[in-house]
Design a protein around this nucleic acid. Structure first.
Lengths: 207, 207
DNA sequence: ACAAGCCATATTTGGAAGTC
DNA sequence: GACTTCCAAATATGGCTTGT
C-alpha cells in the first residue's frame, strides 16, 4: 500500500497481481519470521503456486529442509518437491485444456500436501517422548471413520467424549484420548464448494 | 513497529511478549486476509496457544467454521476445540508439574491438530471430482510405511519415482501417483530436537 | 492483568523508471 | 516480461495512558 489506497479486491491484471503477490509474499514471510522470533510462536507457512513449481515453505525453505534432511539422511522433501514440480508442469498443461477442473485438483493436492507436510513436520519433534503411535492411530482412525461413513453414511454418532478433564496424567495417554475424541472430525464425502480457488496457495495463514 | 526499532529477538518480558504477540497476530491475520483476497492465494493460519484455549484459525474463524458446520450439520470443529480446550487445561496442569515435557506434547498435539485440520479442510473441497480415495490412500500409505519402517528400519529404499511428466491425464490418477510417489516422506521414529518450543503456536510461522 | 485507544515512528509496498 | 531500485503514501505497531 502506497500511493494508492488498496482496494481490497482481487487484482484482475495478471501481471500486477503477480507482482503484488511477490512483494507481499516476502512481507508475509518476513512477518511470520518476526512473530515467530518474538514470541516463541510456532508457525508454518506454505506458499503454493502453480506458476512457481516449488512450493514455498516456512520455516525457511532451507531451515525446514535442513532439519528434514538431517532427519532422514536424504532430503525426500526435495524429491517430493521435484515431483510436485513435474506434477505441476503436467497439471499446467491439463489446466490449459480443462480449466476449472484444475482448480479442484489443485485444492485437493494442496490439502494433501499440507496434511503430509504437517504430518512429517510433526515427526520432526521428539518422537521418543510420545511415539508415532498417535499418528498411526490418527491414520487408523481416519481409515476407520472413512469406512464407517461409507457404511453408516448418516449416523450422526457424536460420542461427544467429555472426558477432557479427567485423570490422565501421562502424555501419550492424553494424546490418544485426544485422537479418540475426534471421530466426528470425519471424512464425509459430501460435496461443497467453498468459493473460487485458483492458482496460488499460502499455507499459513489461515486456511 | 514504532518509537523504537524492533530488536529481532525473543521478548523475555512475558507481559510485553504477550501484548506484542496479540498485536502482531492481528496484523498477521489481516495480512493473510489481504494476500488471499488480492491474489487468489489460498492461505491458512492456525494460531495455537496454551493460554488461549481455542486455536485460532483462518480463513476467518467463522469463515471456515461456518463452512464446516454447513458441511457437517454440526460444528464438530467447535467440539474439537472445546475438547482441545479441556485438554489444554489439563495439560497446563501437567505442565506445571512436568515442565519441559509439556513442550513435546504440545508440539505433537499441534502437529496432529494441523494434520487433522488440513485433512478436513481438504475434504471441504469438491470431493466429488476426486473422491476421498486419495486421502484414504494417504492414510493407508502412512500405515504401510510405518509398518515397513518398523520392520525394515534402515532400508533407504528411495524408489525415486521419476514418472512425473509421464502420460497421465486424469486428475485422480495424477493424485494417486502423487501419493504413491511419496513413500519416502515416511514416519521414521528417529529422535530429533528442533530447538525450543514453548507456549504459542501460529500455524504459519514457525515452530 | 487485560483491553482499548492514541500517537509517533518503523515498515511495507504500490507505482514509475531503468536494466537485462 | 522479470527484477531491482527509489520514493512517498499507507499501514503496522511499540509504548503509554486510562478504564475494568
Amino acid at each position: 500500500m502506497a500511493r494508492k489506497k488498496l482496494r481490497h479486491t482481487y487484482i484482475n491484471n495478471p501481471l500486477k497481481r503477480k507482482t503484488t503477490f511477490k512483494k507481499r509474499k516476502n512481507g508475509f514471510l518476513k512477518k511470520v519470521d518476526e512473530i515467530t522470533t518474538l514470541s516463541d510462536i510456532r508457525a508454518c507457512a506454505i506458499i503454493y503456486t502453480l506458476d512457481e513449481p516449488e512450493p514455498k515453505v516456512w520455516p525457511s525453505n532451507q531451515g525446514l529442509e535442513s532439519v528434514i534432511s538431517r532427519f532422514r539422511g536424504v532430503s525426500e522433501l526435495a524429491q517430493s518437491k521435484r515431483m510436485l514440480c513435474q506434477e505441476n508442469l503436467l497439471k499446467r498443461n491439463i489446466m490449459k485444456a480443462q480449466g476449472k477442473l484444475m482448480n479442484e485438483i489443485k485444492k485437493k493436492e494442496i490439502g494433501l500436501f499440507m496434511c503430509q507436510y504437517f504430518a512429517s513436520w510433526n515427526n520432526l519433534d521428539n518422537a521418543n517422548i510420545i511415539d508415532q503411535n498417535d499418528i498411526t492411530l490418527l491414520a487408523n482412525k481416519k481409515l476407520e471413520i472413512t469406512k464407517k461413513n461409507e457404511i453408516l453414511q448418516v449416523q450422526e454418532v457424536t460420542p461427544a467424549i467429555e472426558n477432557g478433564g479427567e485423570t490422565m496424567t501421562e502424555g501419550e495417554q492424553t494424546l490418544v484420548a485426544n485422537v479418540d475424541a475426534m471421530p466426528n472430525l470425519n471424512w464425509s464425502n459430501d460435496n461443497i464448494d467453498d468459493g473460487d480457488g485458483d492458482g496460488i496457495d499460502v499455507k499459513i495463514g489461515r486456511c
